[in-house]
Amino acid sequence: MTESPTSAPTTTRSRSSFIIFLALVVLTALELYTTGLQIERALRITALSGLAITKGALVLLFFMHLRDEPRALKLTVLVPIVMSVALVVVLALDTVARLKAAP
């Protein structure tokens, strides 16, 4: 037996890493393509944000292997993310309210 005991999962991981790498390259190309599209600003911002969130999720789940980690570690990472999103929403609402109230 010449193969190391960990080579089977390692090979699978390497293969999935290549796929994720290609997906990230394609998504980046899509982002650049989206910036050149003659579409509504709100639609472009939504598309770019969606692409960025997808890219971030791919890095977090597959490159950083968060999907394979125990639940406790997942929660350690996800709770601050949820809290940050809540903070963003509150601040965004505050900004919109202040802009509307401004003379």
């Binding site: 980046t28 982002e31 600003r41 472009r44 770019l48 692409l51 960025a52 890095v59 490159f63 950083m64």
Partner: peptide, 24 residues
């Protein structure tokens, strides 16, 4: 590698929100 991937993760956000988001 975890740290290095995080650097990549942060750049994903910076590239989109600082470089690509349009103003008009």
């Amino acid at each position: 590698a975890l740290f290095w991937h995080f650097v990549d993760f942060a750049w994903v956000a910076i590239f989109t929100f600082v470089y690509l988001l349009p103003t008009v």
